Simulated scan of single mutants.
Amino acid sequence: MTSESSDRQKELEQRERILREREVELRLREMEANIQATDAAFHQTAKHQPEDSQKPWMKKVILGGKLFALGVVTLVAVKIASVLAGFIIVAALGLMSYKLFFESKKTNL
């Protein structure tokens, strides 16, 4: 009785193993088919061009204008800074000359 049940058990295990192997093989075939199907799909792409986009020369003109404006602003800032530095230098020289020549010397003896 035990030999019959163990034989039966072994036979069932063998059938289950065979079924699992078949399922794995079937899944692998399906996966291969999916991979091959996705490899075959090829779509040509193109860069999107808006209809009302500016022309290339217009972009260059705008960039040139920005550069020119930056140059003008820089020159104005340098001119203002040089005038301000001149005022500060003249004021410092005036203060030093006042201290040296016009301020009364008080001697505490």
Rank of each mutant, 00 (worst) to 15 (best):
105 K>G: 04
106 K>Q: 07
80 I>A: 12
102 F>P: 00
89 I>C: 07
18 I>A: 09
103 E>K: 11
36 Q>K: 07
38 T>E: 13
101 F>Q: 01
75 L>M: 05
30 E>L: 12
38 T>V: 13
75 L>K: 02
15 R>M: 03
105 K>I: 15
31 M>V: 08
13 E>S: 06
92 A>S: 12
37 A>L: 14
37 A>D: 13
55 K>H: 08
28 L>D: 02
57 W>V: 06
23 E>P: 00
82 S>W: 07
79 K>W: 12
107 T>E: 03
30 E>W: 11
63 L>T: 08
97 S>T: 11
22 R>E: 02
101 F>D: 01
88 I>C: 02
81 A>D: 02
43 H>C: 14
106 K>L: 09
63 L>Y: 03
16 E>H: 12
96 M>Q: 03
102 F>Y: 06
21 E>R: 14
108 N>V: 15
44 Q>I: 11
44 Q>G: 03
11 E>C: 04
91 A>P: 00
72 V>Y: 09
2 T>Y: 04
59 K>I: 09
70 L>A: 09
6 S>Q: 14
82 S>L: 04
81 A>F: 12
70 L>K: 10
103 E>V: 10
67 L>W: 15
23 E>V: 08
41 A>F: 15
11 E>G: 04
107 T>C: 00
50 P>N: 12
41 A>L: 15
8 R>F: 14
99 K>W: 04
51 E>N: 15
29 R>M: 04
92 A>L: 11
55 K>C: 02
31 M>E: 09
70 L>W: 09
13 E>Q: 13
87 F>T: 01
85 A>Y: 15
67 L>T: 14
100 L>S: 10
105 K>M: 06
44 Q>N: 07
58 M>G: 01
73 V>Y: 10
83 V>S: 04
67 L>P: 01
1 M>A: 14
18 I>W: 10
40 A>C: 03
19 L>P: 00
86 G>K: 10
33 A>P: 00
40 A>S: 11
68 F>R: 10
65 G>Q: 13
93 L>T: 09
54 Q>A: 15
8 R>C: 07
24 V>T: 14
63 L>K: 10
49 Q>P: 01
69 A>C: 03
53 S>G: 02
20 R>W: 04
42 F>E: 11
17 R>W: 08
53 S>T: 06
98 Y>M: 07
57 W>E: 08
30 E>T: 11
72 V>W: 12
33 A>T: 09
58 M>N: 04
101 F>K: 02
87 F>I: 02
85 A>D: 14
79 K>E: 03
86 G>L: 10
109 L>G: 01
30 E>S: 08
86 G>D: 06
78 V>W: 12
46 A>R: 15
60 K>P: 00
43 H>G: 09
22 R>C: 01
35 I>N: 04
57 W>K: 05
100 L>F: 15
36 Q>I: 04
87 F>N: 01
10 K>Q: 12
56 P>S: 02
61 V>Y: 15
34 N>H: 07
58 M>Q: 13
62 I>S: 05
101 F>G: 00
93 L>Y: 10
80 I>G: 08
44 Q>R: 11
13 E>K: 11
2 T>P: 00
107 T>H: 04
89 I>Y: 14
8 R>Y: 13
81 A>M: 06
81 A>L: 08
106 K>A: 05
84 L>F: 05
61 V>N: 06
28 L>K: 04
51 E>D: 15
